[in-house]
Design a protein around this nucleic acid. Structure first.
Lengths: 226, 226
DNA sequence: AATCGCCATTTTGTATACATTTTGGCACGC
DNA sequence: GCGTGCCAAAATGTATACAAAATGGCGATT
């Protein structure tokens, strides 16, 4: 059994995806992309034919997304895509601030030279995309940088938690594009924490990442006119 | 519609529980209590008759618990109660440390006088239970105190996240009862952060709660012979 | 004697059927 | 004219049926 699993692991993960797992991925993507709008009702049967699955796997997927907080299940009354609540987004950002700080500090202590080099490369790319005025690419790279920093913290629990919060924030951000001034400011903050990361200054990196997170939160919440 | 929901809210939440929701609660309790041991296989049909439900709601419940990380689903090969991995517990504690710090700071700023009074009452009770040598009561009160502090932070995202991590830690703690010395030390730490909380010293409270969390982590991980 | 391969059994994943509940509309009464 | 209550239609929650894959044991072969 042990040797067998070892052999399997060597061959690679053989897991064929199940329909409900695929449905979770698709639905989550649809929600994050805004295809399913916040507050809108989720009609089971309609989604079934849209995804080409029966109700059973779809419903299982809805339970998972409910556990993640992306949909809300009202017993006997159907599911809705969780509405964007500025108060909740504010709360999420508050936690994110702490997680960013944690991630930044740990990344300094645990990241490999290669990872730091890659981070530098991504940061240069971010800079170029800012200069080119390519907003969507900028945001994609931005997300990637933060994800990499979190990965460098070598903490799966942090990573999972961070991903969950990121998903919630992303929905709010998609409908709240902030202005040019904030964009410039955001890049400056990136310069700041990148400098701290380069010299492996855990305290400074954590602190600056937290600041960055807080200012991003302010901008997003302002855009949501709170 | 709006007035109607207001009326309903006034009457109280009328939601009848669904079977799968109940199954989630029961299974989670069973896992946390250790009735379903870490690493053990989850036999669907057996649990179905044990809980008195059919496979459909049970399977939905398993997906939810998988999303929470309490069980692992291996496609086509059944579910197992997530084994306790000291590395993962260590990672969880690392995040907990940050969350405790956040909660402590926010609680100082947002807690009401009544809540602080209640906290004092619980702390006195904790003290008494220590003196009485009532270990299980002590731990129950201990958990309650931390939960109250988190509640005082007025942050649902933090609260939910904290609850999830607590669940994971609890399983490890149940099989790792630490020694008398650590017990005494733990109480001292409670005295420490309680003093900071009483004077609404956010920075100190956060810092001391983080310390307490880290030391608890050390003790638990030591008990798991890491 | 040990290993490989095949077959029966069990278990999982999915689809569908059925029972309740909610929802929306209509008629009736005030 | 407005509100209430009832009825039909739709949708949800649950159970069950069916197909496919995994598990375990047996026998054949080397």
């Amino acid at each position: 059994m042990d040797t067998l699993s070892t052999v399997k692991a060597a061959t690679g993960p053989i897991r064929r995806e199940t329909l409900h797992h695929g449905a979770v991925a698709e639905l989550r993507a649809m929600i994050l992309a805004g295809d399913l709008r916040p507050g809108s009702r989720v009609a089971e049967i309609q989604l079934c034919e849209q995804l080409g699955v029966s109700r059973t796997p779809l419903r299982e997927a809805l339970r998972v997304l409910a556990a993640e907080g992306l949909v809300e299940l009202r017993p006997r009354r159907g599911a809705v895509v969780t509405p964007i609540d500025p108060l909740e987004i504010g709360a999420v950002f508050e936690v994110m601030e702490a997680l960013e700080a944690l991630a930044g500090g740990l990344a300094c202590r645990r990241g490999t030279a290669e990872e730091f080099a890659e981070l530098d490369r991504l940061h240069a790319q971010l800079h170029a995309q800012f200069e080119a005025g390519d907003r969507s690419s900028y945001f994609a790279t931005n997300r990637l940088i933060h994800a990499r920093i979190v990965a460098m913290a070598r903490n799966p629990a942090l990573e999972a938690s961070y991903a969950g919060f990121t998903a919630k924030i992303l929905r709010a951000r998609s409908l709240a594009n902030y202005d040019a001034e904030r964009w410039r400011e955001s890049l400056d903050e990136h310069e700041g924490f990148m400098a701290a990361l380069r010299r492996r200054d855990a305290a400074a990196a954590g602190s600056l990442l937290a600041d960055h997170s807080r200012r991003t939160a302010d901008a997003v919440l302002r855009a949501l006119n709170v």
